[in-house]
Design a protein around this nucleic acid. Structure first.
Lengths: 236, 236
DNA sequence: GTTCCTCTAATTGTTAACAGTAGACTGTGA
DNA sequence: TCACAGTCTACTGTTAACAATTAGAGGAAC
């Protein structure tokens, strides 16, 4: 019962509501591949399997639509979004525009306290034994790093625009299966370089660095999609 | 490539649903000033005055939150968003990033058919007698013009990011009361220049032009907010 | 065989009643 | 006067039943 010791940390824990849990469940089902592109999301089915009524389900679907994981048509229902090469182009070009602004704002406004989480993620990454690391774990750390970067920009609306893209990027990060050693080393090098240019407070350098960073990620994604038939990740 | 002349205007007429009407009503109430920053949006009140149940009201509130016109807190209800000078900085910096990408994409991908609406808006603007023009009408044409520009970018996700910002920009456009003649002439000159650089297909020139365009709008807004106490548009 | 219609089943949109929470409002004691 | 319980009220979160819409299966006309 005493979930609040005297004064633990004044973090205002935002109250969780059913919709939050439902959205998390469905999102996880999509990201883990249990739900594939094109699959229909039928409110009654979800309601029964998650043991809630349709109200929270509807709201969760609406939220996931904002995240770009779900497509909803009036009177016709919602389906899991399918991603194509064109979607990748949209997602990464928009991402580049957003991250450019994020890193520029971070150069101006980030405090050392804002940058500490970025350091922490890099340290955490290094502390994971290479043998036990997974594709999913790297993807999570990647998203967490950029999350922290957006937060360091102190730009609420920019963060929300990023949140509308984040899950879709995560989908792409999970596409590849292998984790070659050189990828792991370049991951660390690239991200610590990002943090370094923020600390340098050189906006132009920072923007150029992150443009190359995102551009590189997009190039690798395109290459991967060309090799492994991209249509596989669409509805079969 | 004629666009299916057999069946003329088979625009996919999207079905309207109660939530759409409710969202329009509340949005209009906010934009027209009937609802002011800080005002509470009480579901029962809105439901009764609009003669619908709370379900559609709730969905509409979440949609307006997505548009940035409303702030919602769990178990605490929704209020009309208040805008400050800091919000203006966020909105215009994000807008600049989005429009930069939009005009660059439009340079690459817009067809003449995509640009026709832009021409039409300019012609329409010129056709309105200067005596009967209103601040609101100019604001609408302004938003319509940029709407069409985003559509011409053929970038769905970019359009959705713009939609999350559009209404908030509209609020700022309505702030000023006067409509000096030189503003009207510069409005036309600036926007026809935007259309012109898209037609030139010179991405760098286009991005530089729109950066100046948005930057100028932001500068005028700041000046206005400094003169007329900005706090007036917050909750009194 | 094809085209059109009708009907039906599945599924979403809407409503109204119920449950739980946060903040205001009392009254009490120093 | 203030601090602090307990209670109350107004509101949001949730549910389940009802209404409206769509897609598809079958059947009749040609």
């Amino acid at each position: 019962m005493s979930k609040s010791p005297l004064i633990p940390n004044l973090q205002r824990r935002e109250r969780r509501v059913l919709t939050d849990d439902v959205a998390d469940s469905i999102r996880e089902a999509i990201l883990s591949g249990r739900l594939k592109g094109g699959d229909r999301l039928i409110e009654d089915e979800l309601a029964e399997s998650l043991n809630v009524s349709r109200g929270p389900i509807r709201q969760a679907i609406f939220r996931l639509e904002q995240e770009g994981l779900v497509v909803h048509e009036t009177h016709r229902g919602a389906t899991v979004a399918e991603v194509s090469v064109e979607d990748a182009a949209e997602i990464y070009s928009l991402r580049q525009a957003l991250e450019r602004l994020a890193i520029a704002s971070a150069c101006e406004r980030a405090t050392e306290a804002d940058l500490a989480p970025l350091d922490a993620i890099l340290v955490l990454f290094q502390s994971i034994p290479r043998s036990s690391i997974t594709r999913r774990r790297v993807a999570e750390l990647d998203i967490d790093f950029h999350d922290a970067l957006f937060r360091a920009s102190h730009h609420g609306r920019l963060c929300r625009a990023w949140e509308a893209l984040r899950s879709q990027i995560f989908v792409f990060l999970l596409l590849r299966d292998g984790l070659p050693d050189d990828y792991l080393t370049s991951w660390y090098r690239d991200h610590s370089r990002l943090l370094q240019v923020v600390r340098s407070r050189d906006k132009d350098l920072a923007m150029a660095t992150i443009e190359e960073h995102i551009g590189g990620a997009y190039a690798r994604l395109l290459e991967h999609m060309a090799q492994h038939d991209v249509l596989r990740i669409q509805a079969s």
